[in-house]
Computed example of a mutant assay.
Amino acid sequence: MTKRKIIQYIRKWHRYLGIVLGIQFLLWTLGGLYFSWTNIEEIRGEHLKEKLPFPQSSIGMVSPNVFLDSHFESTDSITSLELINILDEPIYRVVYSSPFGKRARLFHASNGKPKASLSEKEAILVAMDGLNKQAGVTQVEYLIATGKHHEYRGRPLPAYAISFAKPINTTVYVSKEYGDIQTFRSNAWRAFDFFWMLHTMDYEGRDNFNNFLLRAFALFGLFTILSGFSLYIFTSRIFSKKSLK
């Protein structure tokens, strides 16, 4: 193969790959600009969170042994036990793994009796308590399942999605079994999530950096760069003069 044909072959692949990769590089750049020009704390809703008080030690509380021995099976594996505050009441939350998956149960810290999972009314009050701004509730949705693209993906179910009006314009997700706010989701977060999907090129689950498509584009990008260097070497007068000496 002559030098001219090699140059034509490299230039052809460099041009076609440049078009395809250029689109993705543009998406990566737009995503990078959005990530760098936005406040991640605001996207996560940190600026809306109200710091809830911890249960006071002066409140009489029973030992967790009161309910651990009588309400769990030998096959249950307890992964955490926390003392939390739900609507100004101290509550023990036990997270455990059972044959049916990861679960959570609530118990009144004052007497060790089981507390029912949050009702819709309680979930709304929990969401309001967790906000440092006041706003009206526009919608309440009860979730028992979510897809891979849902904004509440990968978090405890069932849950209540409680949407608030201006000035918050945010959906607060409250877990029914865990009894607390799991996350905040606003339009800013949804835009971030969309650009994140474009950035990772994981169009199925959005969070997998090891997907085949991203690896392929990384290799194509490397090939495009190397082909560009090759074109420079083959067409550069400097290298041509050196080869004639």
Rank of each mutant, 00 (worst) to 15 (best):
M61W: 05
Y96R: 09
I91R: 05
S70K: 15
T38E: 08
A104M: 08
Y16W: 13
E46L: 10
S63N: 14
G18W: 01
L87Q: 10
E50V: 00
E46F: 11
H71Q: 14
T38F: 06
K51H: 11
W13Q: 05
E89K: 13
K12T: 10
N65T: 13
S74C: 02
Y96N: 07
A109E: 07
R44T: 00
L30Q: 04
E73D: 15
P53S: 10
F25P: 02
R103K: 15
G22L: 00
M61T: 10
M61R: 11
K102D: 08
S36A: 14
R44D: 09
N85V: 06
L17S: 06
I78H: 12
G32Y: 11
N111C: 08
D76E: 10
Y34A: 00
R44F: 00
L27E: 03
H108A: 15
P64W: 08
G112E: 04
V62P: 02
A116I: 15
R105Q: 15
I40S: 07
T38Q: 09
R44M: 03
S98W: 09
S70Q: 12
T38M: 04
I59V: 12
T38S: 11
I19D: 01
S58T: 14
L26V: 11
L48S: 01
Q56R: 15
V20D: 02
K51R: 13
S70Y: 12
I78Y: 12
I43V: 13
E42P: 00
I43S: 01
T75S: 15
I19P: 01
I78P: 02
N111W: 10
T38L: 05
S98R: 08
N111Q: 09
M61N: 02
G31Q: 05
L68G: 01
R93E: 05
S63G: 06
Q24W: 04
V94S: 03
L83S: 10
G45H: 01
I59E: 14
K49N: 01
I40C: 04
G32I: 06
E89C: 03
E89H: 14
H14I: 00
